[in-house]
Computed example of a mutant assay.
Amino acid sequence: MVVKILVIEDEPDIRENLEDILKAESFAVITAKDGYEGVAKAIAELPDLILCDRMMRPGDGTYVLRTIRGNNTTSQIPFIFLTAMAAHNDVREGMNEGADDYLSKPFSRFDLLAAIYAQLEKAKSRAADTKSKIAVISEALRTQLNHIYGNLELYRQDNPNVLQNEEFSDAWNATLLVTVKLEKLIAALVPKAPY
């Protein structure tokens, strides 16, 4: 799978230089010339990582970061600020705003790629952890659904005439339908483990 990186940078020379470096590493590169275009492309393209200048107009890096973090579909995308603002309090402010990393201009090709690969590895680890948690939760939900269905079936077997009651029959059928729907939702999240 090709990794997509969105570069949001208002200086054309810097943007092109970043694009060349990233393409040389076989990344798919998307570029944006300002924050507004960057946000639109982030939402449309869902990149694997965002490199964003902090000081640009219109739509500075802070606007981009807050918008990205505030959107459910983009909130987990690794975000690296690129900026000439290198004072300690500037770096701290950028990190407090939710950036995953902060590179001060000028930076070396090595530093850029090291930051990118570190953030991609962290994102991969978070995704694996999330997938593992979903699998555990899914299996627990399956167990509870089986328990519900089993108890209903036992009750029906112990009371053979119970389905003749229209209210109970409707409730029985609705409950079975819900358990089937929930099982399908769970299966869509995580396929059933083979035994």
Score class of each variant (00 low, 15 high):
N151E: 08
S132F: 07
I137P: 00
L113F: 01
H147T: 12
A123V: 04
I116A: 10
Y155E: 09
E139Q: 15
K122W: 01
L103M: 02
A123L: 13
E121Y: 12
A135S: 03
L154V: 14
F107V: 02
T143R: 15
I137V: 13
S138E: 02
A123P: 08
R142Y: 09
R126A: 13
F107W: 13
L113H: 06
L113T: 00
L152N: 09
Y149H: 04
D129C: 13
K133V: 13
K122A: 02
L113P: 05
E121T: 01
A135Y: 01
P106S: 07
S132V: 04
N159F: 08
K122R: 13
H147C: 04
A115M: 06
I148S: 08
Q157R: 10
T130M: 15
Y117K: 02
E139P: 08
Q119T: 02
S138C: 14
A135P: 07
A114C: 09
A140I: 11
S108W: 09
A128M: 13
L145Q: 04
L154T: 13
D129F: 14
F110E: 12
K131T: 05
Q119D: 02
K105F: 05
F107S: 02
N159E: 08
R126P: 03
S108Q: 03
K133L: 14
L154W: 04
I148T: 07
N146G: 12
K133Y: 05
D158P: 00
R142Q: 03
L120Q: 04
R126Y: 14
K124D: 04
A135W: 01
S108D: 04
Y117M: 00
R156I: 10
K122T: 02
R142L: 10
Y117C: 00
A128P: 00
L152T: 09
Q119N: 12
Y149Q: 09
L152E: 09
S138R: 08
S108L: 07
K105L: 02
S138M: 15
S125L: 15
R156G: 01
A115G: 02
K131R: 14
R109G: 01
T130Y: 15
Y149C: 08
L154P: 01
Q157T: 10
A128Q: 08
Y155L: 12
Y155C: 03
H147A: 07
Y102V: 03
G150W: 12
K122F: 11
L145A: 10
L120P: 00
D101A: 01
N159P: 05
V136T: 13
L112W: 13
S108E: 05
P106C: 03
A140G: 14
F110I: 04
T130N: 14
A123D: 11
Y102M: 09
